[in-house]
Design a protein around this nucleic acid. Structure first.
Lengths: 161, 161
DNA sequence: CCTATTCGTTAGAACTACTAACGTTCATGT
DNA sequence: ACATGAACGTTAGTAGTTCTAACGAATAGG
């Protein structure tokens, strides 16, 4: 394993210890900063980050039960309740019992909800543009693809238990 | 701006809404999974993620006051207290008042602390290897560099206020 | 000396990720 | 028909992270 050093990502000469345990740290720090920027921007329009995800999924895949919605959005069903409470209260979403299965609620996007989605979409577009501003288009695609692969790998490993 | 579409990272034809607000989401999800994997591994040896960072910085830059340590580790000084409490209690770190400035504590890494650092280093090496296993060496370097640039940009923007 | 600042510390807020359990409703098998 | 078990929405709560505010003690500067 004399080529071991070449296989590492801390391939530099400086920073002996510092870079080593750092992917988890780097991604964590970046996520924290990203979360903050996005959170501030969304808070300015009275939204939380999950609002957008739920609205977007409803727009994309149509009405769904909360269980299906939880699966599609990767939001825990227990947390989804609070999100839907707010969305329904403001009229962006309709939550009605499913006549075919009275355990379920059918969640539907309203026209106001579609407008709200467009608004949040604009806000998040600005946020993402700001976050990725040091990268050019090719690099953004790269970063997205690489992160996506890591993400898929971790998500897959979690399911196979 | 008719080339605007080419400048976006959601350049595909499918997933109209879904990919858009997703960098913040993707990095957030990846960070959460990463945090979980790292957290589990560290918990198995009775450590938290900040333990490693503090020990590593002490090993790299030598003894320091808590304020300096907070700056170097990017850990809030208020949170650093609890970390040092544990590290000192287990003998991995020595916390003594600074004779030159009695407001300060001088935090020093012990020999046991050095051993503990090596242990955590091994654990986190395994974690990072697992996380990045779908990527080859060049891709890891790429991902690291891209994330690092985004991170530096966000960190810089936060300071310039 | 008086004032401002720095130090470690405590307390706590806001949020995220995650688990457990409950009553209700449905599906299955006998 | 009916018991068992599963899925549904919901409530409650835990643990961890990030971040802010304020305090007494110690120091520095005018």
């Amino acid at each position: 394993m004399e080529t071991d050093d070449d296989l590492r990502f801390d391939h530099g000469e400086a920073t002996p210890e510092r870079l080593k345990g750092q992917f988890s740290r780097l991604v964590g720090k970046t996520a924290a900063q990203t979360r903050r920027v996005a959170g501030d921007a969304l808070r300015a329009v009275g939204a939380r980050k999950d609002d957008f995800v739920v609205l977007a999924v409803l727009a994309e895949s149509g009405p769904a039960s909360q269980a299906v919605l939880a699966g599609r959005t990767q939001i825990y069903k227990s947390d989804l309740v609070a999100v839907l409470n707010e969305l329904a209260e403001r009229g962006w979403v309709l939550r009605a019992p499913d006549p075919e299965d009275r355990r379920r609620n059918v969640v539907t996007l309203t026209d106001d909800g579609r407008r709200r989605l467009a608004e949040l979409d604009g806000v998040l577009d600005g946020v993402n543009e700001h976050i990725m501003s040091p990268l050019d288009a090719a690099e953004r695609t790269q970063l997205f693809a690489l992160l996506g692969r890591v993400n898929a790998h971790l998500a897959g490993a979690a399911e196979e238990s």
